[in-house]
Every structure is written in C-alpha cells, then in structure tokens.
Design a protein around this nucleic acid. Sequence first.
DNA 1: TTCGGTCTGTACTGGCCAGTACACTGTACC
DNA 2: GGTACAGTGTACTGGCCAGTACAGACCGAA
Lengths: 236, 236
Amino acid sequence: MRRGSSPPREPPGRTGPLHLRAMTPTPATRRLTPRGDATRRRILKAARDLIHHRGVAATSIGHILADAKAGKGQFYHYFADKEGLIEAVVCEDALALHTRLEGHLVASGDGMHGVVAWLRDHVRIAVEEGLTGGCPIGSVAAEVADRNEALRERLSDAFDTLHARLSNHFRALERAGRLGPVAPGPCALASEVLSGLQGGLLLARTCRRRALLDHAVDGLVRRLTELEIRPPAHTP
Amino acid sequence: MRRGSSPPREPPGRTGPLHLRAMTPTPATRRLTPRGDATRRRILKAARDLIHHRGVAATSIGHILADAKAGKGQFYHYFADKEGLIEAVVCEDALALHTRLEGHLVASGDGMHGVVAWLRDHVRIAVEEGLTGGCPIGSVAAEVADRNEALRERLSDAFDTLHARLSNHFRALERAGRLGPVAPGPCALASEVLSGLQGGLLLARTCRRRALLDHAVDGLVRRLTELEIRPPAHTP
DNA sequence: TTCGGTCTGTACTGGCCAGTACACTGTACC
DNA sequence: GGTACAGTGTACTGGCCAGTACAGACCGAA
C-alpha cells in the first residue's frame, strides 16, 4: 500500500465470497518456527493496537516495529507489505468480533437476550476505552473503504459474517413463531442492529458523549424486546 | 497538520460550545477582493470533493491545488495550513447538512414527515453516488476524531447541531401530545435517528449493498411512525 | 505615475515514509 | 562440522509531502 493514491491491487489466489476465509495473508505461506511465529504475533499485536488508536494512514511501519521491537527485515519476512499487514489485522479483528458475538448468542439461548448482552458489551468496552477507537472494523472501514478494494472486500466479509450470524439468530426466532407480526425480515433486523451500533459508536467517539451510544443501543434493545414474543410459561 | 502524529493543536480565539460558529478559519481574517474570494472558493471546492472521495489523509495539498488550478502561494495566502483548510471544509459540509435538514423539516410541517423525507433523501444521494463517500461529516469524523482535538470539536459541533435540530423537532411533537407514551425522550430519539443513519451509510459503503442502508432507514422510519400519534382528523 | 497591499507562480527544504539490499546469526538436520 | 534455510539488524534509496521564501503581477487609490 503506497501512500496517497494507492491503486486498488488484487492479491492473487483470492476466492469468491466467503465467511472467515483463510487467515494467513503472509507472503507465500511459509513454515514458521516458534520463535518466528512469536515475532510475527508481536508485530501483529503492535499493529492492531496502533491502528485501533491512530488509524491506518497515521500508523507507519516504523512505529509498529518500534513498538514490537523488531526490524524492517523481520517485517518484510512475515508480511508482503503494509497492505498485507492491515489485511491480517482486519482478519484478526473480524475473528475476535465474531467470536464475541457467537459467545453471547450461545450463552444466552434462543431469545433476544444474547443480542442485547452483546450490544451492552460493546457499550461497556467503548466506555472503558474512553470512547476512543470505536469499532475496530468500522473505523478502518470508514478510512479505507473507498480507496482500497481488497481491504474493502475483507471488511465487507467481516460485516457480512456478523450480519449473517445475527440474521440466522433472528430467523430461528421467526421460525419458532417468536417474532411479532410487524417485525421486518431477519436480514433487515440484523442490518438495523449493526447500523445502530456502528453509528452509535461513531457518534459517541466523535462527541465524546456516551449518552449518544447509550441512546442508540437502548433504542435497539427496546425495538428487539418489543418484537419478541416470549414463549408461554412452562405449564406442568 | 503535519503528517503522521500531529500534536493536537488548539487554535487561538476559540470560544465555548456553540452551534454553527463563525465560518472563516482563514489565517487572520483578511479583506478579500472578488478575485481572491473566487480563488479561495475554488480551493475549498476542490478540497471538499477530494476529501469526500478519498479521505483526509489521502488528500494532499498538491492534489487539491492541481484540481483548483492554483499554486502553493495562493493556498497559504488563504489558509493557515492543511488543518485550517480541513476545518473550513468541515464547516461548509456541516452547514450544508444542517440546511438540508432544516429545509425538510420546514417544508413538511410538524409531523414525522420531514424527518422521514430527510432520511430518504440521504438514501437517494448515497445511491446516486454509488454508495461511495458516505456522510461527509461522518467519514471525516471516523478518520480524525482520535487524532486531532480541534477537528474533533468541529465535527462534534456539526453532529450536535443536527442532533439539536432533531431533538427540538421531537420535543415540539411531544409537547403537542403527539408522541406515544412508550417513546424515549426527544434527545434519545434524535440519537437513535442519527446513529442509525450514520451506521447505515457506513455499512452500505463498505459492503456496497444499498439494502443495508435501506433496512437501517426503514427501521428508523417504522419506529418513528409507530411512535407518532396522528392528530385527529379535522372535525368541522 | 506612484504606492501599497492583494494576489500569484515557482523553486526549494527538510522530514518522513515504504520498500530494498545485504550481511549476518541461530539452528535443525545430515 | 557443514549445509540450508529461517530469522535478524541496519543502512540505503527514491518519492512524496507540508510548509517556506521570494520575486513578481495585478489593481485601486492618491
């Protein structure tokens, strides 16, 4: 990724649409010894932290390597270029987000509780971080979506994965007759939830007021609980 | 605004919170002849276009001046530095957004129609632009909110202005007894609307699928119309 | 015509950056 | 011990960038 106007470059060997595709955008997959693997992870971790707090454009490889205590030679040993690193960062963040959603949904059964808990969890984390950073995927997306097609696709995949997981959850509820008659389709509902969350994170971050995020999430929660038809109490 | 880690710099003479504050962040306000004013506007227009389509970091002064057919000397004659230009761009975009909202609200009376029309208008524009760019304020906010405090405040003001206008509108409805009993406060409702719109724009832009934005806006519209209590038909 | 300020064009500077070249070290395996 | 390759450190290159210096053009007023 050269600075400024980087021409959209399509890395070779990419396959069609998918969710959570292979997670190793290293230059020509290579055997890694434990030491090498540790170095690669150190660079990746430093990159995630810096990109999350300062954005893609403002994070230079030099800064990353200083934080990771590694040299240029090591960087280009494990990543093809800056774009490859960012792709790896996006993949890690996407996987982490999906894992978190999955955890909440699995832990809370088939009602709206899991979705609500997931939303509240995002609020908690955002507040803990002082309303900076926002969504790891969303912030990067806003910055690069129109300037790098390969990264845009990765980010799109990340959103699609979350969207699909939410959709499936709502679809299951719908099939069980637990979604009110005025409810939009599961897909539309998932879009509403993701949009409200992303927008709330962006507004709260920009205005440094958590009320904006609270209100956005409260609105979503109210909407979801109003749409849910609670199963009849267990009759013995 | 130096590249990379620009230290947050507070321009002198800034006053407290406000909406739509003075709009001339030129270096030491200066008399402009018609010719000079035209040049300044040309630079500003080129900057708005480029920043909207490529983002702040990826837009260099050189590119802007090439588009505006102006030289370095002219640029630093009308703007203090890159940050001053971006501030001016944000102010222009903020004013344009506010004017558009105001227009819809005034044209459509005191119901939800104006808000709905405004939301639909955003969808129309986003689709016309091929789902690129997103919200002029939102995109810039996502990029610089954590890295430049002065710009963050400008962007915060811009959101606050829109938020206040929506809040006032909902508050008037509430006072007229036309908001349902389960409705959240006017301020919370405004946050929901802004968040849903911003998130929808971001998702649609990233995934290049207008359905995401449509669903987000449809959800907001449904929520608003369900909350509205229509005034009784005019009885003669 | 002169004078002063506005306006304009261009050449230059110093700094940062992504990426490369290359020499070197560690180590598993034979 | 020697070979092959993974891993490492550093110096360098060429390019882009924000910002500066400065000379000169334009233009209204005296």
